[in-house]
């Protein structure tokens, strides 16, 4: 198996013309957006973006050490995720999955490369305590709707639907600190679902969940994707069995995208790696 299989071909267009994330775009590059080349090919870009909800091209990210030397976290990562699909991002601990996800969410600025993510987008943290900001379930799920001009009834309806989707509609008035880790995680997901975002960036959602809750949460996300063709999700996980529900998968290692594409192919690839590792251990 070719470990460095070429990435799935994306629609032909110059990578420099892909609009970068405004949060991560250096100020001096803003003019690029309005260059004549950009304006001439804008029509092409719009059609390309209709195909992909998430695009990252040659993304690099590094952090400086105390001595000032840069430590590379992401090395030339490129991914393109079609709209309306659920993709999973896998890889060993410390390979840069969460960093890539935070760059896609706009929480980190890449040191190189271009990023395009459809908006509105939503991000769910690995630890639900970092995501849930209000003291009770109902108010927290409604927090993300505060930017929209909705009536109380509309908010209530959306909150109920989102909580119902994750099986937490009976817990609307419960204080957050009385919930278990899995229940908090569901509330965090409900908050993301209630916002009806076009892109869901989900960072190891099932870490705190048992098997039943795990499947329930995946199905909840899958349902939200099925309801709207515009919703796209990128899901970071360590669990191979979750690949069954994915439309595509990306495998990362040491800050690089190693393999990319069909979930079955990624599963085989990881199983081969596991087998090779076990063989090495036994020899």
């Amino acid at each position: 198996m070719n470990l460095l299989a070429p990435l799935r071909p994306s629609p032909a267009r110059p990578s420099s013309l892909i609009r970068s994330n405004p949060l991560s775009r250096p100020a001096h590059r803003k003019c690029e957006l309005f260059s004549s080349a950009f304006l001439q090919t804008r029509r092409v870009l719009v059609s390309a973006r209709d195909d992909f909800a998430i695009e990252a091209r040659h993304v690099n990210f590094s952090v400086p050490t105390r001595q000032g030397a840069p430590v590379s976290i992401l090395k030339d990562c490129s991914v393109s995720i079609p709209a309306g699909q659920l993709w999973m991002l896998l890889g060993p601990n410390g390979c840069g999955k969460s960093t890539l996800l935070k760059i896609l969410a706009g929480l980190l600025a890449p040191t190189g490369g271009k990023v395009y993510v459809r908006r509105p987008r939503s991000f769910v943290f690995q630890n639900p305590d970092h995501q849930v900001v209000m003291p009770t379930v109902e108010a927290d799920v409604a927090f993300g709707l505060g930017k929209s001009n909705l009536t109380q009834e509309e908010v209530r309806s959306k909150v109920f639907q989102a909580l119902d989707a994750v099986g937490m509609s009976d817990y609307m008035q419960r204080p957050i600190q009385t919930l278990s880790g899995g229940q908090k995680q569901r509330v965090a997901i409900a908050g993301a679902l209630a916002e009806a975002c076009k892109v869901l960036l989900l960072d190891e959602l099932t870490t705190f969940l048992d098997e039943t809750d795990q499947i329930g949460v995946i199905k909840a996300v899958k349902n939200s994707l099925d309801k709207s063709e515009e919703v796209t999700a990128l899901w970071v996980t360590h669990r191979l069995e979750e690949l069954e529900y994915a439309d595509g998968a990306i495998y990362m290692e040491d800050g690089k995208v190693i393999s990319y594409g069909d979930p079955a192919r990624i599963t085989d690839f990881i199983k081969d790696k596991q087998a090779a590792y076990i063989n090495d251990m036994n020899c």
């Binding site: 970092h130 930017k147 916002e195």
Partner: peptide, 13 residues
């Protein structure tokens, strides 16, 4: 820090 990031990503400006 994480909660402030979560608030930003959830639309609080």
């Amino acid at each position: 820090e994480q909660i402030s990031q979560a608030m930003i990503i959830r639309g609080f400006r």
